[in-house]
Design a protein around this nucleic acid. Structure first.
Length: 646
RNA sequence: GCCGUUGUAGCUCAGUGGUAGAGCACUUCCUUGGUAAGGAAGAGGUCGUGAGUUCAAUUCUCAUCAACGGCUCCA
C-alpha cells in the first residue's frame, strides 16, 4: 500500500508505506541525501530513519534549516555526553538540549572540578567518537524498562524525568556506548559532526530551581565544516571587540564607580553628547508626532504606587522607601513614570475631543535588580526611558498603534537597524482569569495590534500567554551588524492603570468613559539603546551622533594658528571637535584620531593655510584630498543632518 | 540572590612569603616633522577592602566589596 508524500513545493509523490526520510531525500537528489539531517513530518521533526506510515507533508531539513541545526546540536549534546561518560565514569546526566548557538549538557560530576583542560580533553574525545560515525538508534521503551535502565545506571536525574512521563511515550536514543532518555530527533550518525568547540562551563541548578543541587553546565558548539566553526569563532572575537563595555571605556563614554554603587552608570562628557543627541532626535520626532513633553520628579509618595498596584507586586523587590524626618511619610524612587503621568492626565477634566493625550518624558527610573544580573549598560539599576503614555479612546487604539509603529520604525531606520521583527504578546486563551480588563476590549486590542502591524508590513510572531496581566503588547527586536538579536522598543496596551487611577473622559454621549492607556518606549532605555548602538556600529557612530565629529591636525606647531582659526569656525557652526596641537608628527596625530574613531580629520599645513583649505581624511577610508574649508563645511553639514530634519 | 572565576599604575597585563615590574597613556626636554606610533629623561601603585596565620603577607587562610561567565528574576 502506498502513501502520499507532499513536498514543500506542493508536489505529491507516492511512496510505499514505511518509507523513511532518508529514502525520500535520496529520491529527490543525491546532494540532498548527503546533506539531510532530519525531516519535518506534518510540522513535527523526525529522524531520517523513522518510517512514515501515513500520508504526510514533509520537508527535508539540512544545516540551513533551524530544525536541522537543532537536531545537529542536540545530537552533539549526546556526543558530548558519550565523551564525558567515557572520560569520567559514573558521571550523571541532567538535560542536554540544543540552544540558539550550540548546545549544553547539565552534568553531575560528583564534585570533581572541571576546568579548561577538561574541556579540551572532552573535545578531543568527542572528535574521536564522531569519526566512528555511530548511528543514532531510536527505540521505544516502556516506563518500567526505562526506569530499570537508569536505576541500574544510578542516574537520579533521568529517573526523575522519566517518572513525569506517560508510559508509551518514552523513547531512548543510543549511539556508540551511550544511551539517553530523549524524544529526539537526531541526525543519522555522529560523522556529520566535524568541528567541535566547547566554550565554557557554568553552574546551573537542576531544573532551574535554586533549592536543587547545582550541576555543571558545559556549553559547546559544533558544525558540519571546520570553516563554519572558524567563522563562528571569528564572530565571537568580533563581538568581544565590539563589547559596549570595552568601547565605552576606550571612547570615554561612560564609567562605573564602586563608590557610587553597582549598576549606576556615570555618563562621561562624550557619552553625554551621544545621549543628548539621541534625546534631541527623539524629542523632535515626538513633537512632530503630537506628543506633549512633561517632567515629573524622581520620587513619588508610596501611596502613588499603592494606587497603581506596583507596590503590592514589586514593593519587596524595590529600593526601600525614603522617609521624611518629621511626618514620617514614605516615598519611593520611581520605578516607572506611568503613575505620575496618570496624575497629569487627571489634573483636569478631559473630553473625548481632547483624546488622544500623549505625554512624553525622558524619565529616569530606579529598579532594584539582582546583583548577578547587572551587565554594563544593558542591565542597570538606574536608567532613563524614552517613555510616553498615550491616553486614548478604545476606538483610537489601532490608529495610535500605527503611529507608534511608524515612530519606532523611523528610529530604527535613522540609526541603521535594517533588520527587525516584532513579537505580539497575547493572552493565554486557556486561562483568561490571569488578566484584567473586559474580554471584548482584549479581543479588540489584540486584533487591532495585529492589524496595525500588518498594515505597516511588520514581520510579527504572535505568542500566546506572553501578554502582561494588564494588556497585550508589541515588542521590537532588532538584529545588529553581527546578526545578534536585541529586544528594544515596546508598545503596551494597559487597561489596569486607567481603572486604578479612575481616569475618565466625557464622551459625545455626555457619559463618563474610561480611556485606554498605551505605554511605549522606542529606545526602551537610553542606556540599553546606547549599548546596542555601540555594538551595532562598533563605536563608529553616524556623524550626527559622534561625540567628536572632527579633529583638526596641524602638520606642525607653525600651523596651530591656522588650525585654531579652522576650529573656531567649526565650533561657531556647532560642529563638535578639537584641535590636536601637541608637539607630535602628523602620522602620530592621525593614528590617535583614527583610534578614537573620529569621523573626519582635517590636516592643515602650509598649503592649506595659504589657500584657506583643509586636507580631509575620513575615518577608516583615508585621504580624501584638499578642499576649501567652506566647501568641507557645506558637505559636512549635509552629512551630519539629524534624520527627520532639514 | 545563588554557583564559579577574577581583582597589581589611568589602560592592557607580568610577577614574588622578605614591603613591586613591562608596554601604552601622562609630564619635561630635544625635534617642526605631509596621511596609522620620532628620540630622551621623569613622575606615577597603602598589589580591591578588612581580619587571621607568620619574625615577615601583594603572595597563604577567612570574610567582605566589585567585575566577569552562568542560573534565577525583570513594572
Amino acid at each position: 500500500m502506498n502513501i502520499k508524500i507532499t513536498l514543500p513545493d506542493g508536489s505529491i509523490r507516492e511512496f510505499s508505506n514505511g518509507v523513511t526520510g532518508a529514502e525520500i531525500a535520496r529520491s529527490i537528489s543525491e546532494g540532498l541525501a548527503r546533506n539531510a539531517l532530519a525531516i519535518e513530518v506534518n510540522e513535527e521533526i523526525w529522524d531520517l530513519s523513522r518510517p512514515i506510515t501515513s500520508d504526510s507533508k514533509v520537508r527535508i531539513l539540512t544545516w540551513n534549516d533551524a530544525g536541522g541545526k537543532k537536531a545537529f546540536w542536540h545530537s552533539s549534546a549526546h556526543l558530548m555526553a558519550e565523551a564525558l561518560e567515557a572520560l569520567y565514569p559514573g558521571v550523571k546526566f541532567g538535560i542536554g538540549p540544543p540552544i540558539e548557538n550550540g548546545f549544553y549538557y547539565d552534568v553531575d560530576l560528583g564534585g570533581r572540578p572541571f576546568g579548561e583542560d577538561d574541556l579540551i580533553a572532552v573535545e578531543k574525545k568527542m572528535a574521536e567518537l564522531a569519526r566512528k560515525e555511530s548511528r543514532f538508534i531510536r527505540s521505544e521503551v516502556s516506563k518500567k524498562d526505562a526506569l530499570e535502565y537508569f536505576e541500574k545506571k544510578d542516574d537520579p536525574y533521568k529517573i526523575e524525568l522519566i517518572q513525569e512521563l506517560a508510559d508509551g511515550s518514552i523513547t531512548f536514543y543510543q549511539q556508540g556506548n551511550f544511551t539517553d532518555l530523549c524524544k529526539g530527533p537526531h541526525i543519522p550518525h555522529t560523522g556529520f559532526i566535524k568541528a567541535i568547540k566547547l566554550l565554557n562551563v557554568a553552574g546551573a541548578y537542576w531544573r532551574g530551581n535554586e533549592k536543587n543541587k547545582m550541576l555543571t553546565r558545559i556549553y559547546g558548539i559544533t558544525f558540519p565544516k571546520q570553516k563554519d566553526l572558524d567563522d563562528y569563532l571569528l564572530l565571537l572575537e568580533e563581538a568581544k571587540k565590539r563589547d559596549h563595555r570595552k568601547i565605552g571605556k576606550e571612547l570615554e563614554l561612560f564609567t562605573f564607580s564602586e563608590r557610587v554603587g553597582m549598576g549606576l552608570p556615570l555618563w562621561l562628557p562624550k557619552g553625554t553628547i551621544l545621549r543628548e543627541r539621541l534625546e534631541q532626535f527623539m524629542r523632535r520626532a515626538q513633537v512632530k508626532a503630537g506628543y506633549d513633553p512633561v517632567v515629573t520628579p524622581h520620587i513619588g509618595s508610596k501611596m502613588l504606587y499603592v494606587t497603581s498596584g506596583h507596590y503590592q507586586k514589586y514593593g519587596k523587590d524595590s529600593f526601600m522607601p525614603i522617609r521624611t524626618p518629621d511626618e514620617n511619610e514614605e516615598f519611593l524612587l520611581k520605578p516607572m513614570n506611568c503613575p505620575h503621568h496618570c496624575e497629569i492626565y487627571s489634573s483636569k477634566p478631559r473630553s473625548y475631543r481632547d483624546l488622544p493625550v500623549r505625554l512624553a518624558e525622558f524619565g529616569t527610573v530606579y529598579r532594584y535588580e539582582q546583583s548577578g544580573e547587572l551587565h554594563g549598560l544593558t542591565r542597570v539599576r538606574g536608567f532613563t526611558q524614552d517613555d510616553a503614555h498615550i491616553f486614548c479612546r478604545p476606538d483610537q487604539v489601532k490608529e495610535e498603534f500605527i503611529k507608534v509603529i511608524d515612530l519606532v520604525l523611523f528610529v530604527f531606520k535613522s540609526l541603521g537597524f535594517d533588520q527587525y521583527t516584532a513579537q505580539i504578546s497575547l493572552r493565554d486563551p486557556n486561562d483568561k482569569s490571569k488578566y484584567i480588563g473586559e474580554d471584548e476590549l482584549w479581543e479588540r486590542a489584540e486584533r487591532e495590534i495585529q492589524e496595525a502591524a500588518d498594515e505597516r508590513g511588520l514581520k510579527t510572531v504572535a505568542v500566546k500567554g506572553e501578554a502582561a496581566f494588564y494588556g497585550p503588547k508589541l515588542d521590537f527586536m532588532v538584529k545588529d551588524a553581527l546578526g545578534r538579536s536585541w529586544q528594544l522598543g515596546t508598545i503596551q496596551v494597559d487597561y489596569q492603570l486607567p481603572q486604578r487611577f479612575g481616569l475618565e473622559y466625557v464622551g459625545a454621549d455626555n457619559q463618563r468613559h474610561r480611556p485606554v492607556m498605551i505605554h511605549r518606549a522606542p529606545f526602551g532605555s537610553l542606556e540599553r539603546f546606547v549599548a546596542v548602538l555601540i555594538e551595532h556600529c562598533a563605536g563608529n557612530f553616524p556623524l550626527w551622533l559622534a561625540p567628536e565629529q572632527v579633529a583638526v591636525l596641524p602638520i606642525s606647531e607653525r600651523f596651530n594658528a591656522y588650525g585654531n582659526s579652522v576650529m573656531d569656525k567649526l565650533k561657531s557652526l556647532d560642529i563638535r571637535g578639537f584641535i590636536d596641537d601637541r608637539d607630535e608628527k602628523i602620522g602620530r596625530k592621525i593614528r590617535d584620531a583614527e583610534v578614537r574613531k573620529i569621523p573626519y580629520m582635517l590636516i592643515v599645513g602650509e598649503r592649506e593655510a595659504m589657500e584657506g583649505k583643509v586636507a580631509v581624511r575620513k575615518h577608516g577610508a583615508g585621504d580624501q584630498g584638499s578642499v576649501l574649508l567652506d566647501e568641507f563645511i557645506r558637505k559636512f553639514q549635509e552629512e551630519a543632518a539629524v534624520p527627520g530634519e532639514g
